[in-house]
Design a protein around this nucleic acid. Sequence first.
DNA 1: GTTTCACTGTGAACCAGGTCACATTTACAG
DNA 2: CTGTAAATGTGACCTGGTTCACAGTGAAAC
Lengths: 245, 245
Amino acid sequence: MTASELERRLSFLKEVAPFNSIPKTALELVAGSFQVRKYKNREIIIYQGDTTCNFYVIKTGTVRILTIDESGNESCLRVLTAHDIFGELSAYDSAPRSASAQAVGPCTILAMDHSVFRRYLMDMPDLALAFTQFLSEKLRWTTLFCHTIAQYDTAGRLLHLILHYKDMFGRVIVEGKTYEVDLPLTQSDLASMVGARREWVNRLLQKWRKKGFLTYSRGTVTILDHSALVAEMNRRMAKFQDESW
Amino acid sequence: MTASELERRLSFLKEVAPFNSIPKTALELVAGSFQVRKYKNREIIIYQGDTTCNFYVIKTGTVRILTIDESGNESCLRVLTAHDIFGELSAYDSAPRSASAQAVGPCTILAMDHSVFRRYLMDMPDLALAFTQFLSEKLRWTTLFCHTIAQYDTAGRLLHLILHYKDMFGRVIVEGKTYEVDLPLTQSDLASMVGARREWVNRLLQKWRKKGFLTYSRGTVTILDHSALVAEMNRRMAKFQDESW
DNA sequence: GTTTCACTGTGAACCAGGTCACATTTACAG
DNA sequence: CTGTAAATGTGACCTGGTTCACAGTGAAAC
């Protein structure tokens, strides 16, 4: 790797969550240990159940995390994009992969071998602490999310999801009002993510379309009235807020 | 602390998840840094929103983790017992407490100051790795749980919850068949945990009581037919398993 | 002992969401 | 350009779950 390549990789890694808080010298060491890999559309990066333990950083492109249950039914868990990391859990604990990862469109991915990664964790307390903090934030977020979705009804969960991905993927058209969210997801995928049926997701999207809140066209959600969607979502929680006083 | 006290504490900590995998010499160091605290029934150990960052291990008794939302509505997140740890997240990342912790009955708790804890994490790579693994398992579990409850209906979620606490709290009466699960939870608490209303939880419990699957009496669930409950729970998933082939 | 209050049990009306069945649109292979 | 499969849209009907209203049942408090 040339010096300018290293330089570019360093500035890239500074945008990646757990690496942005470690000293520059440490980061230089780490940066050299990634391999670059390219994946084509629909290519599988990680197979659920595998015992590979590498960990990955998305350089460009989009990755879908999904599970397939005993009866072959596939269900999308989440969608990741540039600067997100995935596969870290197995890198720490060597447990089999709990989900698959699939390229959505062409992707460039940095991969690190788990034994190298573990060594860094042991040798660089700063890195270990950064990862611990990263994990703890993620766990805090997931726990809250888990609790939140248990409270919302299906419409609330779907809005929650759309607004979440708006923050990740959204292209601003009119600040605070109009956004284009290019999710690589079908309505069936959305349904599997919120635990509902495709038909109901469709009906909800239609309802919001008729109200002028958003439009949906094979994977692209265009938010037309952001504050109306937020208000709609909050109304969904309200039903649980009136008791106990 | 006398030598025999230290000895007892060491053997206690060997039963506590992230400490059970670190070398004995390291454990001896850590063990000396806990303070013992006693809490009375209903006493609050951690207040949601606080910026204290200590972390805790339950020696004896039961602790309830709960949140209170903007409108004062309290909702139970989970219930912990001896050998469980809590409050670790703020110890890593110093973020404000996302939930409160309350003693259910008298409790003895070991507390460690977060600055001491952080120092150990920096100085002892073994400990840091053990905690990283612990966190990653917890995150893996929480993610799966989150995904699972989104799929189940209310009855399925309630069964999932009861069976989960059976593993934590259950006293075996007849192996594989009858268990007594002494949860310190009202039906309203159960309802808030599965995102349903008290009345519906009651109706479900009544239904299962009439079928002879369990009984419920102010906080104590007695599982009378474990395999029937498991079967009932699995049936709840089945509705999502028939499509896509 | 009786008052009180939090928890539990239950009916009836109603709405969210699932089920099934099909029509329509769109993407893509040949 | 055309056939085929996948994704989307929609109606009719049914069930799970909420809402509201109120009655029963302890357990602790005076």
